[in-house]
């Protein structure tokens, strides 16, 4: 316990990085997920194909491969383009940016499917009722689709988020000093690996438990008019 207290700042800094990374990638993936769901459901063939390719590729490759590809390959590519076009000098992609981008893009594919399913779960007739009342498309989305979509999406959203939160642990392999990285290095230098990994275990569990509470509140808020079995 003394050991943990001695390293508390390092653990805390790791925790902050983990939470920041998770939230940054969540914002990106929800945005991509909404765009992806819209593209998959739109009548536009090109949008369908693009979204289809996105989800197929991303969901078919291990997360770790993508993270390393973006971090090591992305930097080279960006700088090659910079040199070729002369538009920018040497750019260094930070581990944080590479991690947030990659995890955001990966989970955007899962959110695409979650949101697509949620929109399809809304009875078509309710949308027609909105259209026949003279509502514009944005109004139909805001007043009828969105509130019900959130309700149908909460369970899948919660699942995705928990996996996403845990996936941030992978960025320790590209050297980002998140919770896992800091716990592991503290454990190694003190020789008390078990103690520090147990601490990481407890902290992750606390984060997911906290998320669960938030998700339940969200579900309650958007369950108006639902008859419970």
């Amino acid at each position: 316990m003394d050991l943990l207290l001695e390293y508390r700042e390092q653990l805390l800094a790791g925790l902050v990085t983990t939470v920041e990374l998770a939230l940054a990638s969540l914002v990106l993936s929800v945005t991509l997920g909404l765009l992806g769901a819209w593209a998959k459901l739109s009548a536009n063939r090109a949008a369908n194909a693009l979204a289809g390719a996105y989800t197929t590729v991303v969901r078919g490759v291990p997360d770790l491969v993508l993270i390393m590809l973006v971090f090591f390959g992305g930097q080279v590519t960006v700088n090659a383009i910079g040199t070729a076009t002369g538009l920018w000098d040497y750019v260094e992609i930070s581990q944080f940016v590479a991690g947030a981008l990659t995890i955001g893009v990966i989970f955007g594919a899962y959110f695409t499917e979650t949101f697509r399913g949620a929109i399809l779960a809304i009875p078509r007739g309710q949308i027609e009722a909105g259209i026949s009342t003279g509502m514009s498309r944005p109004l139909v989305f805001r007043r009828i689709i969105w509130p019900q979509m959130v309700r149908y999406a909460v369970p899948g959203f919660g699942n995705n988020w928990l996996v996403q939160l845990k996936t941030t642990a992978l960025v320790s392999v590209i050297g980002l000093q998140d919770l896992v990285y800091n716990a592991f290095s503290a454990g190694r230098s003190t020789g008390a690996l078990f103690t520090f990994m147990a601490a990481a275990f407890v902290i992750y569990l606390a984060l997911t438990a906290l998320s669960d509470l938030g998700l339940r509140a969200l579900e309650r808020r958007y369950s108006r008019g639902v008859v419970r079995a």
Partner: peptide, 22 residues
């Protein structure tokens, strides 16, 4: 079209009330 639809109210076979509203 939206303006004219507002003046052409429709009642559906399946009611189609918005289930999240009272």
């Amino acid at each position: 079209v939206e303006r004219m639809r507002a003046k052409l109210a429709m009642v559906f076979q399946g009611f189609n009330l918005w289930s999240h509203m009272t």
